[in-house]
Design a protein around this nucleic acid. Structure first.
Lengths: 222, 222
DNA sequence: ACAAAAGTGTTGGGACTACACCCATGT
DNA sequence: ACATGGGTGTAGTCCCAACACTTTTGT
């Protein structure tokens, strides 16, 4: 290979790669992130990538070990570099979304769920990764329908709206307009069930199988 | 470290990481990509990442070797995995933008610039990377002002509009409306110079130092 | 009857599209 | 004078935020 390095007899220092996944869920009215309880201080999960495994499989396995579920929504975020200490280690960061009702509770004591708006102290690297994941998530729900990945199979429009407001940390969404937009997007279908509330019962909806997950981007610059 | 692997006496197979940059420029009315002329068949540039160098520096060096310039706009794209053949090699893909007037011409014969809409046959991996880079570039110019990275210091509004149309491969942009939007964005300042044309001379503009590169995202879902 | 929450209709203003028009230069 | 391309104004349309309103349930 043209760019291969010529080193002396000694083998070159091997590169290491780590996978770290920011797993989000929606619980207790908060957007929560899964930290690894194995370490102290708290940290994101870290798994060394073996040569025989794909990055995505490594991330999936990491999610499975922490949540007991392997079918979370998963997307690659960014690959971070060496910082002051890590030398020649690459961190491939991912983010994942999983609905709270899928989380097995008692087992998986390794998982430590914390409010993304009230995190314990982390290493700067891990803080950066989580901030970036949050930014990407916020960005993403504005042009696609991924918020559903955080809700149970059946949900009310109010719950969907709450999900948006919690993720965006902005509680000024107008109910009527929100509903209109969701209706027009044609991504939901009604269920013949209702959720009991303190007032009028709320109709339940589910996400349509054939829904278009990504709305086409509308140009706004220029 | 908790996740470190326990292997036998033999060292684990080392991971390799490669940096590949999709370098775009705007030349001859085309959006062009830089391929490496050293290989045949044609391919994206590939540089092995050494343990002592950051990924970004490796990408910058790659750009310098092909273009003679190191200050291109640079952004990480995605990290690809092993495919059928590559075994345990990670490819960290980047994309870069460089204005055509900065490209030194005679030297750097390694660089082979080709129209992104009329590429030679490449490996599937490299085709994927370029398609993805193009998609990200198109996406990006709709909410930020990176198109300027592909233009010379001074340019006319028509040239800017052409840049948009070429990148988007959509030539239906309305002149008047385009100008209005650019004006409102307040990212340009006039220069007291004009470009000769076959008709009325065109005013030259330059990008404002204090301009806001990213316009705030407007929500369109929901 | 009233509180609480679901659910809908209307309206005024702002943004975008389409298109017509004017301006400055060379031949 | 006219061709060429730069540069601008405007009217109609569509979209959207704000807000008021109706409906259905429990107490």
């Amino acid at each position: 290979m043209a760019f291969e390095e010529q080193r002396s007899v000694q083998a070159p220092p091997a590169l290491r790669a780590i996978v770290s996944t920011v797993i989000f869920t929606l619980k207790a009215g908060q957007l929560q992130v899964c930290l690894s309880a194995r370490h102290s201080p708290a940290s994101l999960p870290e798994t060394a990538v073996s040569a025989s495994q794909s990055l995505e499989d490594a991330a999936k396995e990491q999610i499975f070990q922490l949540t007991g579920h392997a079918d979370a929504y998963l997307q690659q975020l960014y690959t971070f570099d060496m910082d002051a200490h890590s030398g020649n280690t690459l961190t491939v960061a991912w983010f994942a979304l999983i609905a709270a009702d899928k989380l097995a509770t008692a087992e998986h004591a390794d998982a430590n769920w914390v409010d993304v708006l009230d995190m314990p102290q982390l290493s700067p690297r891990h803080s950066d990764i989580i901030s970036y994941a949050l930014q990407r998530l916020r960005y993403k729900i504005e042009y696609s329908a991924v918020a559903f990945e955080l809700l149970p199979e059946a949900f009310t429009l109010r719950e969907l709206q709450d999900a948006y407001m919690i993720i965006l940390n902005d509680f000024r969404l107008d109910k009527a307009n929100f509903r209109k937009k969701i209706r027009e997007a044609q991504i939901l279908e009604e269920i013949d069930q209702y959720r009991e509330t303190r007032g009028r019962p709320a109709r339940l909806y589910r996400f349509r199988d054939d829904a278009q997950l990504e709305t086409k981007a509308r140009r706004f610059f220029p």
